[in-house]
Nucleic acid binder design. Structure first.
Lengths: 228, 228
DNA sequence: CGGGATCCCCCGAGATACTG
DNA sequence: CAGTATCTCGGGGGATCCCG
């Protein structure tokens, strides 16, 4: 069999043939946040070799998950965009992200938080928290490490996006450490997190408790000390 | 960064570091059906190099997803078993399997159906079909290629397991082709499937329509001809 | 015979440089 | 900006061997 194939007529094997390629899921994660140029992807995936990025994009295009299209107008750059078929993958990737996050307590040496990972984390966390029932729309900006993302809580809907929001009601700034992760897990209460200085809050502080209730990613119940 | 790591403090990246390893998800798929010996795994994963299987099992054990334990008594062989942490992965793998199956119409040259893949397919298909409401327990044996699996429909619950069932109410035999896949997708009706000879049915034939309604894995709506 | 370990080959990932 | 070209090297693929 060709080395990336498994020789089994099995949905999971077919998925693994595509997503098991190195960097493939992270490329899709980034593109599921929104269309990106080649250099945007390279910047959002620190450490990816350029030839690997080029090869993966070509493969994902052949697999029908990504399309490349020239942007019209004066800007002649090329953007990569996910297809509907890749959109169908979002629930599965979110489930994977949720599982992985449940086994993740502390960043390893040198690990960073990227913009796309933060957006994905917020989206997954919104699915794991108590459904909001805000009377008015609340916007929130979250910073972790160098990454910035925002969330918009409107009624019962939560959307997460990259970058700043022009007029956030609440801004949460966490360092590169596990502060935000502990907050989302609920092992560190909102007040304690602020008191210990692991997160910094500006804006309407009274919204912080709501935030911690709306966004939730628990730690795995079956975690021993070894599986950091 | 070590070559299997991604250097990102991100749940999806952590998951990809484990599941992106070659053969890892198929090993877990097989073990999620039930405990297996080394040689059982090797037999159920045609083409896996022995060194890779040994290395993966060691890694999965270190990652806390697999435990190896000696079977007591006269049988001194070793069985591999999934941990609770790996059980938590089941929904995500099922979502991946469902997505992969949606893009899978026809077996490629030389592709086989294994027992574990058939069991997994039935479990995923049960989640995608109409919830059953059988008054009595119905058991069904399904054969595809060389693989045999069975399903037990009891009230609103469906369980899938490997191998035969002592007294099935219904037995469906499909060849190595896409016959069973088309039946599950609904593109081939039960009567047509029998009439065209792509599946063979023994037992209570009147249960076949119920089977096709209870087990369902649709084709992706966004599929073009290229993405077989 | 089950459960691996070892060896060799080679593909593909990683890193960097370079070009249309 | 958006990739190719080139090189090195670790890890996978395949076969064989070994040990209890």
């Amino acid at each position: 069999m060709r080395t990336r194939e498994y020789g089994q007529f099995c949905g999971l094997a077919r998925a693994a043939e595509i997503l098991g390629q190195r960097w493939a899921v992270l490329i899709l994660r980034d593109l599921l946040v929104g269309p990106r140029r080649y250099s945007d992807l390279a910047a959002g995936l620190p450490g990816i070799p350029s030839n690997v990025l080029a090869a993966r994009l070509k493969e994902l295009e052949q697999d029908g998950l990504v399309v490349r299209q020239a942007r019209g107008g004066a800007d002649r750059s090329i953007v990569y965009r996910v297809t509907d078929r890749a959109e169908e993958l979002r629930p599965a990737l979110d489930a994977l992200a949720s599982w992985g996050a449940a086994g993740m307590r502390v960043p390893r040496e040198g690990e960073v938080v990227t913009e796309a990972s933060l957006v994905t984390a917020l989206r997954v966390a919104a699915a794991g928290g108590r459904p909001p029932g805000a009377r008015r729309t609340v916007t929130c900006v979250v910073r972790a490490g160098d990454a910035v993302a925002h969330a918009i809580v409107s009624g019962t809907r939560v959307t997460a996006g990259p970058g700043e929001h022009p007029a956030p009601d609440l801004t949460i700034s966490a360092g590169s450490g596990p502060g935000l992760r502990d907050l989302l897990a609920g092992t560190l209460g909102p007040e304690a997190a602020v008191a210990e200085g692991v997160i910094e809050v500006t804006g309407d502080r009274s919204l912080l408790a709501d935030f911690a209730a709306t966004f939730h990613v628990p730690y795995s119940a079956s975690l021993t000390g070894s599986a950091a």
